[in-house]
Amino acid sequence: MSDLATDLNIDRSKMQVSDEVAVEITGMNKWFGAFHVLRDIDLTVYEGERIVIAGPSGSGKSTLIRCINALEEHQKGKIVVDGTVLSNDLKNIDRIRSEVGMVFQHFNLFPHLTILENCTLAPIWVRKVPRREAVETAMHFLEKVKIPEQANKYPGQLSGGQQQRVAIARSLCMKPKIMLFDEPTSALDPEMIKEVLDTMIQLAEEGMTMLCVTHEMGFARQVANRVIFMDQGQIVEQNEPEEFFNNPQSERTKLFLSQILGH
């Protein structure tokens, strides 16, 4: 059983879940061409929830969270984010995207801009924030992810872990209500995974609503309040982490857990 390698004292009591609905997905279906990637997805996320989505590769978990901020278009069903119905209307998409932050597997920092410029770009051009204020916010979040001293460097000069922390700070600068993480640690060397996970735990403790696609089962066990297992484009099982890991119900879940934790 892999444990979460963190020195932080995780305080689950700070992580409160409210009754307010953050994201509501009902009967969502998506096809890539003729391939049915997401099948009848129903999911309600409450504010302050930390949800980990696990599953074998190709099970549609990344596609699911990419649908939430309209990076992928869904063909059937309904997605409501923070009261806004996701439709083809650009205004709606804009509103949702400014409420939802996203962190990618490969960081996707803009290599031609400094770390600071990466963080201030969207606030200045989308939120229309004065530059001084944007810089202050950016420095605040860079301090939070513990790399304020790198602010004037370029992404190419940073290590993978540092880049991913900048990517998190960049999303936070938009002051999102919900954060999506798409395998944030899979492209990192083992010694860098910890620093990124620490940042994510810190976020959880501040009550951020989080949806994480990840293979870090230690993180799921200790931080998540709900684990969702997906296979073949559908939600197969969901439960509280303790129950999910100790007493999986479905055969597929058991198989998956034995593969990922067994050795």
């Binding site: 099948r39 709900r226 073949q232 197969v236 099982e237 969901q238 439960n239 509280e240 479905s250």
Partner: peptide, 17 residues
């Protein structure tokens, strides 16, 4: 939070788009 508890007993078949 047991309302989140969910186990799929039968897998959904692939549908045509």
């Amino acid at each position: 939070m047991s309302e989140h508890k969910f186990v799929r007993t039968e897998m959904l078949p692939e549908q045509t788009p």
